[in-house]
């Protein structure tokens, strides 16, 4: 706990929360623009399902890159300041430091997801959506987004800590964003191989085109559980391998 608070303390003058909120505002503004356009072209589209589906697909592009930026900032300060040697010359273990950085990044990205959920709820209420707020769908969206972000953080942290040159980790974030955005174009089996595809893959609402009309379908919870379980296992593996490799790396 103390190490996590020290990690967060190191971030106090980096304005990282402010940066995340500003970037999130741009994403939210874009989501609202896309939603408003959809509603103005067809007022029947003013449903919570449509809003959730749009948010999930924009998350596929935006969150992998935002996660890469957040994790890179948290890890790069040790590379830039050459502070790893200093930290490890104290009684701190590398595994603990790795875990503290992971938890700090996770806290920030969960904060982003929660803020996003609240903002879209407010948007829906202000636009007088017919149905009441579907809290269960929002909780599922939050769980899906958070879970995917946690796995992406594990992968990004591994690269950001192992490779000093942050261009590579940010390039990975960019490729992740690309795959996250285009994931729905892949066949289901191929899609399931990419961790970034789960921003839409774990969304409680999916889109389908029938008779040149777009339909929003609520997914059954039980259909997502195997994917969630597999994702958690993959995430644990990525974290363990990353922590193991970074812990044995020459500084």
């Amino acid at each position: 706990m103390k190490i996590i608070s020290i990690e967060l303390y190191k971030l106090r003058h980096k304005r990282i929360t402010l940066m995340l909120i500003l970037f999130l505002l741009v994403e939210i503004a874009w989501t609202f623009m896309a939603t408003s356009k959809s509603i103005s072209s067809n007022p029947e589209n003013a449903t919570w399902e449509m809003l959730i589906a749009i948010v999930a697909s924009i998350n596929g592009l935006f969150l992998p890159i935002l996660t890469a930026i957040c994790v890179s900032r948290i890890c790069d300060m040790e590379h830039k300041g050459d502070t790893l040697k200093l930290l490890l010359s104290t009684s701190m273990k590398r595994g603990e430091l790795y875990a503290a950085k992971y938890v700090s990044a996770a806290i920030l990205m969960i904060l982003v997801s929660i803020l996003q959920i609240f903002s879209i709820m407010i948007f829906g209420i202000m636009n007088n959506f017919k149905e009441s707020v579907p809290l269960f769908l929002f909780v599922r969206l939050l769980i899906g987004t958070t879970l995917t972000s946690l796995i992406v953080i594990a992968f990004q942290q591994w690269i950001s800590m192992a490779v000093k040159n942050q261009a590579f980790s940010l390039c990975l974030g960019m490729i992740g964003g690309f795959i996250g955005m285009t994931a729905d174009l892949f066949p289901a089996k191929v899609r399931s191989l990419f961790i970034w595809s789960y921003y839409t893959g774990l969304s409680p609402v999916t889109q389908s085109y029938a008779n040149e009309k777009i339909q929003f379908i609520i997914r059954d919870v039980s259909s997502l559980i195997p994917a969630m379980a597999a994702l958690i296992v993959v995430g644990i593996c990525i974290y363990m391998v990353g922590s193991f490799q970074v812990s044995r790396q020459e500084i």
């Binding site: 940066m19 970037f23 890159i65 942050q166």
Partner: peptide
């Protein structure tokens, strides 16, 4: 290193 890339992402939108 990362902040200008984040700004670029916002600028894209």
């Amino acid at each position: 290193f990362a902040v200008p890339i984040g700004i670029s992402l916002c600028a894209v939108f």
